[in-house]
Design a binder for these strands. Structure first.
Length: 1133
RNA sequence: GCCCAGAUGGCGGAAUUGGUAGACGCAACAGACUCAAAAUCUGUCGUUCGCAAGGAUGUGCAGGUUCGAUUCCUGUUCUGGGCACCA
């Protein structure tokens, strides 16, 4: 072999070797993109996160507040809570729980509608797109959601149940004796049999339907009433509170006034006490509980009456301080109080009228804006103090609110600052009832003073006098103990499009619930999103949709080809042609209904032989206790016989029903009757004539069969059986954003159920949400409403618990850290932060992504927006940086001169260019690094500004973890050697700390624990599988992808996701000696290693022998030596 | 105005029950490896006096309780959040 060949061979071998090494290196490198892609794909394909409702394991429910899918997508602030809950879910799974951890979208809401108004895109479309974006972003982070359980509040399959639950609220009332919700049927029954304090049963039964419905409306948990809305004439629309700024509209600054409109409300005030009490049984943060308590605003006091001089009437006041009754110097009524016009004297009438006009002219916002302004007017009337007969003037003033208490107060200037200011302002003399405790300069609102000048209360401490005074008031029959709440009933309707339509139709001012079977009432498609003619929601513009006629289904039929077939009277032979009507059986007007009634009456007079025969039986036998009616109109249809209770119709057909044409009519009618919940059974004349017994048997069977339908479909649709005339119109407002979110946590338990909102078995199994994670912004809205809904459902026996969330964790808000550049006024020149005071500048937000810390990437900035292409920079050191294109010769670009940006912490938002997209970070560092970094930032509960800088450190840590298994050069380093005690000590210390930290949601310290552990293992060069695989299990919740990859690489079967959490063993941590800190007079002076077995006596001796201690003692005896075993030693001199 | 939470190095933060303040990370500085860069590794790192050993001081501020206080108590300032004429 010649040299050349040999050289060639060795060259080839060398090259081959190089390739092999580089390939091996490639395999051993931490390629997070590949790893994360692989495992996310595998998880999805194998459905590893699919959770069953049927498991022997104990359950655990971890829930995130589901997001509103905004167009902006996720920014780094959103995933904070999601990562925390994901870690916790995965941790619980390792601990052997069946963990429910779902995700969905709160996809109804105003922003989508606003966007639609601006761009003309349909909210359904933008919502769909936004959700897709959100999901793809979420998936990149590697969350363990069971997407099969996803819910979207704007899907008909979801809001069908929101509507159903609304109907439950509508059909329930709050029973004051049992303090719980009950079906309104019970109340109706009570009214009809016993009446109540305002009317007798006879009176109730004599009330018209409209009167009855009005009375019931006052008790329903979801009710309709007239309420004030912010009405903007110029925009022709109703505005939400936050769309009104200082009395004018946010958009366009048009004036906004109060307008009364019919609104829907939830009677949440009935639950005030139980919402308050429930807080003691849940694990929420103190501040969260406090916020809810404040919102509910319970106050205890007394309601009592003051007689008005010269008039028979009394003024009812509410006070929490009945102890100050002898200090009352005047009464104040709210300007809207009903007594105002009655008691005002002729002399004061002009003044009062003027004042009322003034008050009306002021919006709520104005009244709020100038809190301290004192206004009021004397009515001329006087009231009498029931205790001392003192004559006290009655005033009106806007500081008294009509909506709270009785809308009237007794003013005690020496005990209440507002009353005091009022008295001073209007020169009303002040009575002092607390002697020296009142200084004449300001009110003393404490309850600590001793009462004087106070009749039977003299000498009592004010706080003790309260109860005494109330007892006296009750004794005298002039008032009673009374609890008031600040909370108001929750407004539940919005004059908007993108929300759940109400399953309600209106007829003659009576709200009629749609039948359960008619749900979902789908949100119709609209082209325009503008308000209706009277400021109603956009739905009001859909006249075809709003006007129901009878029912939506009937309406459909009328619009279809069947109209022609339905219209003619089907039995002209029987009824005679002279009575034919264009609509026949269909009644959509008063006149048509009258026709139908007339037909029915006539039919009754003229029965067929077969009808008579069966009627005898039905009437006499009263089959199975059910009452039948004959020729009784159902909506526009006149059946031969009907059992209203069972919704069963019986038809005895004459021969003409054999005609094909007639059969089309029949089946069409059967269809829309079934939409009302009615079923039908047909017999021929022959059947009745020949075998009556069999016919009756069939009816009995049908009644039994029908039982579930009849039970379920409440007889609550008067439309079906009462006289229908006049127009039937749909409710045009929609439900607010919190409707869908008030119960979504239940739907996750049983998301595909088409029979009910959530099977009782499922809700019994999953029960309460164990941990609920979300922001504080929902403290008083969503959380109160969902708590109320849960209580209602519990009361009605629909679920088995009355608090939805066992534990609430509030994640802090991640604020944006904005960067600014300073543009010299009028020039395309920017000055660095340190020199900006030398110039007049405009501060511009600059994209944080082109700033490294505070140093601007000047070239990236020039490319950022075309207008900055030629920008000149005055750098921090005063040198210039100009674009080269100005001319190579002229362009100055010193090497390392920096342009420094300004910083400000603000809310994260696109317009401030301070958003950071998680996708970018995941692409650059991987999901595992991103997850751990978000957790490493600080406690989950804390708010903090985002700073990308530190992510490098976490990424270094992850790579260091990887290097415990694979070395860049040596390749595999992990081995299967037996672990030493020292190594196991490191591991078990880590197990203990991770378990503790994860349990208490201290994820930032958990991350640093991992860092410490990996540092220590690196230091002692531990690459042993026995230790490392336990570490992988520990870290799975935090960094699931790398854990799964390494777990698999070191030869484990199955997923680390389902491994068992390592059991901590304290024996590895047992120490024999402790390096005690030795303090002298509390100041640390030395350390001393002492055996843990040492007795206190031995320790004292060792301490006294110590050089440092001796030096400090200077030969004296110590006064005392404090020794706390295992902790520290303190020598007191 | 009322209620709640918080304040610790240049920065994010740790100290779980009153017991070694500043873990872990970032930034900074010094060094090793390298032609160089990246990556990696080692060291220093509250302030202050001192060559050093070793002191002094230090958890918003002022007091207090305690052998000992970031931790408990009182007062106070500031920051963040909530409510806002609720009798």
């Amino acid at each position: 072999m010649c040299d050349a060949t040999e050289a060639r061979i060795s060259f080839v071998a060398e090259q081959l070797n190089k390739i092999l090494t580089s390939k091996q290196q490639l395999i051993m490198e931490y390629d997070f993109k590949k790893i994360e892609g692989t495992w996310q794909g595998k998880w999805k394909a194998d459905k590893v996160y699919k959770i069953s409702n049927d498991s022997a394991k104990p359950k655990y429910y971890v829930l995130d507040m589901f997001p509103y899918p905004s167009g902006a997508g996720l920014h780094v602030g959103h995933p904070l809570g999601y990562i925390a809950s994901d870690i916790y879910s995965r941790y619980k799974r390792l601990k052997g729980f069946n963990v429910l951890h779902p995700m969905g979208f709160d996809s109804f809401g105003l922003p989508a509608e606003q966007y639609a108004l601006e761009t003309g895109q349909h909210p359904a479309e933008t919502t769909r797109i936004n959700i897709a974006t959100f999901k793809s972003q979420l998936d990149k982070i590697g969350f363990c959601y069971d997407w099969d359980r996803e819910v979207r509040t704007s899907d008909a399959s979801y809001y069908r149940w929101t509507q159903s639950l609304f109907l439950k609220l509508f059909n329930s009332y709050f029973c004051n004796t049992q303090q719980k919700a009950r079906p309104i049927k019970d109340l109706i029954k009570k009214f009809a049999t016993k009446g109540n304090k305002d009317f007798t049963a006879e009176q109730w039964n004599g009330f018209s339907e409209m009167e009855q419905s009005a009375i019931l409306m006052k008790r329903r948990l979801a009710f309709s009433a007239y309420g004030e809305v912010n009405w903007c004439e110029a925009l022709g629309t109703v505005l939400a509170n936050d769309e009104v700024v200082n009395g004018v509209s946010e958009r366009g600054s048009h004036p906004v006034i109060k307008k009364k409109m019919r609104q829907w409300y939830l009677r949440i005030t009935s639950y005030a006490d139980r919402l308050l009490e429930g807080l003691d049984r849940v694990d929420f943060s103190d501040s969260m509980k406090e916020m809810q308590r404040n919102w509910i605003g319970k106050s205890e006091g007394a309601e009592m009456k003051f007689e008005v001089y010269g008039l028979g009437s009394d003024v009812q006041v509410y006070t929490t301080r009945p102890d100050t009754i002898f200090g009352v110097d005047f009464l104040v009524l709210a300007p809207e109080h009903e007594l105002v016009s009655k008691i005002t004297t002729t002399a004061q009438k002009t003044a009062i009228d003027e004042y009322l006009i003034y008050v009306k002219s002021r919006s709520d916002r104005e009244r709020m804006a100038e809190v301290k302004q004192i206004t009021g007017c004397f009515t001329g009337a006087f009231a009498m103090n029931p205790f001392d007969g003192k004559q006290i003037p009655i005033w009106i003033a806007e500081y008294v609110l009509a909506g709270y208490g009785t809308g009237a107060i007794m003013a005690v200037p020496c005990g209440d600052q507002r009353d005091y200011s009022f008295a001073k302002h209007f020169d009303i003399p002040v009575t002092n009832i607390i002697g020296s405790h009142y200084n004449g300069e300001e009110a003393n609102a404490t309850k600590e003073a001793v009462l004087e000048n106070s009749g039977f209360l003299n000498g009592l401490l004010m706080k003790d006098a309260i109860a005494v005074a109330i007892n006296k008031i009750e004794e005298l029959g002039i008032g009673k103990r009374k609890v008031n709440f600040r909370m108001r009933d929750a407004g539940f309707s919005r004059q908007r499009y993108w929300g759940e339509p109400f399953p309600i139709v209106w007829h003659d001012g009576v709200a009629i619930a749609l039948d359960e079977k008619q749900l979902p009432l789908e949100l119709p498609y609209v082209e325009k999103y503008g308000p209706g003619p009277e400021g109603e929601g956009p739905l009001a513009n859909l006249t075809g949709w709003v006007s129901v006629g009878l029912t939506p289904n009937l309406k459909q039929d009328l619009n279809s080809n069947l109209k022609q077939d339905l219209t003619p009277n089907p039995s002209p032979k029987e009824r005679g042609t002279e009575q034919s009507s264009d609509y026949g059986y269909v009644t959509s007007t008063e006149a048509e209904w009258k026709h139908t009634i007339a037909f029915a009456k006539q039919n009754r007079k003229d029965p067929t032989e077969e009808e008579n025969k069966i009627w005898q039986e039905l009437r006499n036998r009263n089959i199975d206790g059910y009452k039948f009616r004959r020729q009784h109109p159902i909506a526009g249809y006149i059946p031969d016989f009907v059992c209203l209770e069972k919704k069963l119709i019986i038809e005895i057909d004459g021969g003409y029903h054999n005609h094909k044409e007639q059969q089309i009519f029949d089946s069409a009618r059967e269809k829309w009757l079934s939409d009302f919940g009615y079923s039908m059974i047909r017999f021929t004349n022959e059947e009745v004539k020949n075998d009556l017994q069999n016919t009756l048997k069939k009816i009995t069977e049908e009644l039994a069969k029908n039982i579930s339908v009849a039970k379920e479909v409440e007889a609550n649709s008067p439309l079906l059986w009462r006289g229908v005339g006049g127009e039937v119109k749909r409710e045009t407002s929609t439900m607010p954003g919190y409707a869908g979110s008030s119960w979504y946590f239940l739907r996750y338990m049983d998301p595909e159920n088409t029979e009910t909102f959530c099977d009782r078995k499922a809700s019994d199994y999953w029960n309460q949400v164990d941990v609920y994670i979300g922001g504080t912004e929902h403290a008083v809205g969503h959380l109160l409403y969902s708590r109320m809904w849960t209580k209602v459902m519990f009361d009605l026996g629909m679920i088995g618990f009355d608090e939805p969330f066992k534990r609430l964790v509030n994640q802090g808000m991640i604020q944006g850290s904005s960067r600014f550049v300073y543009r010299v006024a009028g020039e395309n020149k920017f000055v660095s932060a340190g020199l900006k005071n030398n110039y007049t500048t405009n501060d511009l937000h600059v994209d944080v992504n082109i700033v490294d810390g505070v140093e601007l990437d000047i070239n990236a900035f020039r490319k950022w927006k075309p207008e900055f292409e030629q920008a000149i920079f005055i750098c921090e050191d005063g040198t210039l940086n100009t674009p080269l294109s100005i001319g190579e010769g002229l362009g100055v670009r010193p090497g390392d001169a920096k342009y420094i940006c300004g910083i400000e912490v603000e809310k994260m938002s696109k317009s401030k260019y301070n958003t950071v997209n998680p996708n970018d970070l995941v692409d650059k560092y991987g999901a595992d690094t991103f997850r751990m970094y978000e957790m490493f930032l600080g406690p989950v509960e804390a708010s903090k500004p985002w700073d990308t800088k530190g992510i490098e450190g976490v990424h270094r840590f992850i790579r260091k973890l990887w290097r415990l298994f694979y070395d860049d050069i040596k390749g595999q380093v992990w081995n299967e050697e037996i672990a030493t005690d020292a190594e196991l000590k490191v591991l078990h210390r880590c197990i203990k700390k991770i378990e503790e930290d994860t349990e208490r949601f201290s994820f930032n310290t958990a991350v640093s624990t991992f860092m410490i552990c990996v540092n220590e293992l690196s230091d002692i060069k531990c690459h042993k599988k026995e230790v490392l695989e336990k570490l992988l299990i520990l870290i799975t919740p935090y960094a699931p992808h790398i854990a799964e990859e390494l777990w698999n690489n070191i030869g484990n079967e199955g997923l680390v996701l389902d491994a068992a959490f390592p059991v901590f063993d304290g024996k590895y941590l047992v120490e024999t000696t402790k390096d005690y800190p030795v303090s002298i007079n509390g100041k640390l002076r030395s350390n001393l290693a002492i055996s843990l077995d040492a007795t206190e006596k031995e320790v004292r001796q060792l301490v006294l022998q110590n050089d440092v201690v001796q030096k400090w003692l200077e030969g004296k005896e110590p006064k005392k030596i404090i020794f706390i075993k295992g902790k520290m030693i303190n020598v007191v001199i």
